[in-house]
Simulated assay, not measured.
Amino acid sequence: MKFFDFDHPFFRPLWRRIATVGVTASWGIFEFLMGNHFWGTLFVGIGALSFYGLFITFNPRDPEPKD
């Protein structure tokens, strides 16, 4: 079990992947604008990690069954 399982069937629709990245990155930017640098860094980092996992290395096929 992974902490962030980007191969989960929940993330197959493109709109969910876009929304996940968009919400986390937008919230991080909002936190920076409000002067909360810790939370801004945290959420922008999660957005970047989500972008990498959901668009760069994402595999939309069903995972192979484990024996």
Rank of each mutant, 00 (worst) to 15 (best):
F30Y: 15
R17K: 12
G40Q: 03
T20K: 02
P63A: 10
R16V: 01
H37I: 14
P9D: 10
T24E: 10
P65S: 01
H8V: 07
H8P: 04
F6G: 10
A19N: 12
F6V: 05
F4L: 13
G22K: 03
M1K: 11
R12I: 06
F58Q: 09
S26H: 07
L33Y: 13
D67R: 14
L42C: 12
W27N: 03
G28Y: 12
F30E: 03
K66Y: 13
F32Q: 02
G53P: 02
F38K: 04
F11N: 02
F3L: 12
M34T: 13
L42D: 04
W39R: 08
W27G: 05
D62W: 08
Y52N: 09
P13S: 14
I18A: 02
P9L: 03
F30T: 15
G35V: 11
E31P: 10
M1I: 05
D7W: 12
W39D: 13
T24I: 06
W27V: 01
F55P: 02
M34D: 05
T20I: 06
F6R: 12
I56T: 03
I29H: 06
H8Q: 02
H8D: 14
G47S: 07
G53I: 04
L14I: 08
P65N: 04
G28M: 11
V44W: 08
P13R: 08
K2C: 05
P13C: 15
F4W: 12
R61E: 11
I46Y: 01
P13D: 10
F43S: 00
I18V: 08
F43R: 01
L54R: 11
R12H: 07
W39L: 11
I56L: 07
G45N: 02
F3A: 15
V21M: 05
G35K: 15
A48V: 14
G22Y: 02
T41C: 08
T57R: 06
A25W: 00
R61W: 11
G53D: 12
G53Y: 11
R12L: 03
T24S: 11
P65L: 07
W27R: 00
R16L: 07
